[in-house]
Nucleic acid binder design. Structure first.
Lengths: 248, 248
DNA sequence: CTTTGATAGTTGTATATACCACTATACCGG
DNA sequence: CCGGTATAGTGGTATATACAACTATCAAAG
């Protein structure tokens, strides 16, 4: 059995989280299974109950486990198809909707991060980041304008990529080894401004859907902050919601 | 200053959560503000640092605060947001965001289902359903107009409920035994029309966020179809997306 | 002037301990 | 047979303590 130590730079509760994730991946713990108690896990891995509890708590928050007082902690019964909302880039999104995605790169450059962007990416303002300004098309028609800010060590290499014919997300995941795991997204209604109107070929004052998204890779490291403007009357955002609840 | 005790049936960390929510609601703590440190809060309310920390942690998870190691804990600078990943009614949503929810019932009646509504609720057109037309307020200000169509056996009893002071969702779940488990929602940007402008007290042509939602109870039985218009510049939808995560 | 270092304050991690609230089970007495 | 009750095990709450990691600030050294 693997042991948990603190010599490594990773916290013990985090190591236990990974161990438990692996037990689910491997099928050792199946949906509905009762996992060992907090005290038991602590003893097994030589850590305190509260540390084991922290690991479990975070996995409960992530939806992998659920607790029942007096009974124990169980592996969630999530159907495979019951995935929450899929994190998709524009390209995958359009294909899923049965439309032909297209892209025109308006600009791509390295530049210092503005304060608002730096805050979202959790870096210092003024640090050099990659900024990508794109016009997004669906079946040849302008649909959205997207500005992506990307920050990781070596992100200047993106300057040499062909981003009109390659999905940015796919590149990051495959070529740069940066899995995009989660994202926080905000949606807000607004109006098309004069600059956007030219690109999108709609009148100023038309309805617009503004989205802001921070995408995270491993260890909740922010890697992209993207801000988009969608033509309001050409785009509908779908989502499926689930009530948090503990039913047995 | 209110004191925290455990004589009451509510846990101390929970009491502190409510106190801090109230500080946000009242405006004492504004977005971006640095809140007192964990040690300070513990001392102030006569509880231990770890208990104060638990209260803060939960509010961080709910998106109300964010932490920065070495600096402190801050009030989030988001506008009103809705957790898309959790299914919440307007009332729960507003409370969680530190805003005071309010409701004005514009009409409540039984009437035959229109075709579009019937299709979403998977019933025959013309069947009697409960239709509720409400103006939604946040801290006393008009925020949205919502029309709910509800269909279940005995739904005419809803006519006798006080829906200005009770959460519809809470009533359905507790009194009527109808757990609301999942929902499909569409979001679209648009413009405020003349009728809505009067209720919401904004100019015609202001940005608006249109939502359409079908809510399901057990066995994927549709129970509510709700169509809403939110003031575009007062409301932000927030969603957390995950990519398939059980692979390494 | 810039750099280094000390320092105080913050959150982050971790332990040990204690008791409460709840559940399931086994046992006992009617 | 039924119904209490004792008990052991679980998660839930709470405390006190300690040190690590990080940030801001300021003073001293170069």
């Amino acid at each position: 059995m693997s042991t948990i130590v603190r010599k490594s730079p990773l916290p013990r509760y985090y190591q236990l989280k990974e161990i438990m994730r692996e037990k689910i991946r491997s099928g050792e713990w199946k949906p509905g299974d009762l996992i060992p108690s907090e005290r038991e896990l602590g003893e097994q891995y030589g850590i305190s109950r509260m540390t084991a509890r922290q690991a479990i708590t975070e996995l409960v928050n992530e939806g992998l486990f659920y607790r029942e007082q007096g009974k124990g902690t169980f592996v969630s019964r999530r159907k495979i198809t019951q995935q929450l909302i899929h994190l998709t880039g524009f390209t995958e999104d359009m294909k899923a909707r049965g439309q032909q995605p297209g892209t025109r790169v308006l600009s791509a450059e390295m530049r210092p991060a503005e304060e608002a962007v730096a805050e979202r990416l959790r870096i210092k303002p003024g640090l050099q980041i990659f900024r990508l300004h794109r016009l997004r098309l669906a079946d040849g028609e302008p649909l959205a304008i997207e500005v992506s800010h990307i920050s990781f060590i070596g992100c200047e290499k993106l300057l040499e990529e062909d981003l009109e014919h390659n999905s940015l997300y796919r590149l990051l995941e495959t070529k740069y080894g940066l899995p995009l795991l989660e994202a926080d997204q905000e949606l807000e209604a607004g109006l098309i401004g004069s600059e956007e109107a030219q690109y999108l070929k709609v009148p100023v004052g038309s309805p617009a859907l503004f989205t802001r998204r921070v995408t995270y890779t491993e260890r909740n490291q922010p890697i992209e902050y993207a801000s988009s403007v969608y033509c309001g009357n050409k785009y509908v955002f779908y989502t499926h919601m689930k009530r948090e609840q503990l039913l047995s």
